[in-house]
Write a protein that binds this DNA or RNA. Sequence first.
DNA 1: TCCTTCAGCGCAACCCGGTTGCATAGAGAT
DNA 2: ATCTCTATGCAACCGGGTTGCGCTGAAGGA
Lengths: 138, 138
Amino acid sequence: MDSLRCIERLEKKGVRATSIRILVLDALMNASGTMSLADLEAVLETVDKSSIFRTLEIFEKHHLVHSIDDGTGSIKFEVCEGEDDCTIADMHTHFYCEKCHRTFCLKEISAPLVDLPEGFQANSVNYIIKGLCPDCCR
Amino acid sequence: MDSLRCIERLEKKGVRATSIRILVLDALMNASGTMSLADLEAVLETVDKSSIFRTLEIFEKHHLVHSIDDGTGSIKFEVCEGEDDCTIADMHTHFYCEKCHRTFCLKEISAPLVDLPEGFQANSVNYIIKGLCPDCCR
DNA sequence: TCCTTCAGCGCAACCCGGTTGCATAGAGAT
DNA sequence: ATCTCTATGCAACCGGGTTGCGCTGAAGGA
């Protein structure tokens, strides 16, 4: 789609904009929800699994995307929203539908953060609710 | 240890108390925190992996234990507290130490439950905070 | 007590997502 | 044009989880 925006975004984060990286980022930005490595593999047929894997690794390190573990056994990826780095406060709620097996980002609901006992230091939060999505409820 | 308590607990939930099931339940009840399948395998050297796996499957179905996905790639198990079935309100907070790779149960802190958008129906919550535990902080 | 039956178990193989080593291709610098 | 170093593809590997299958041992009935 608009690969220019992707290139811009990549360079802003100090990541060299190679063709594959543009493809991966573009796929993630155009995704309706989260995407797993397998999802990306399916969309980007020509690109090797390990290349996507390493690309995601780099993206994550440079705070272009973050990963969510929804407990399905395959990690989901999602582009970071803000221009700046994702902080713990930016983590939002995710919802996993046990019927259609989709993972939803509830961006408007930030993940709650409880008070931890003395001595624990929080770095990130993984908050995922499982159940039935609106499509599967009825 | 006190296998009598295990037998009682098993039968109360309608699970036949075989020797292996008693061993597994006993190991879980005496564990300081959560245990993975690999942990159980290590403790119960004589018992086959698949037997433990199927035992846990049965335990979970009968609400003797519940599983937690802490994002490490290996699912953790923990005995259900109350006499009754685990409900969504019983889910508590877990903490994963990124340094020593232990998963802590913060039983006193129940997992927060946010209001979901119209149409979503929650069945369970997975709330895990990652960071450094007291031992690893200093 | 003996026989039948079936759940429980061990073994081995398999599956799948993720990960890594290595050789090549390609972009950027000189 | 050549050199260098990063990015990529390929193939193999890894580990947790899962399954098929045959044996075993306990429960139940004659």
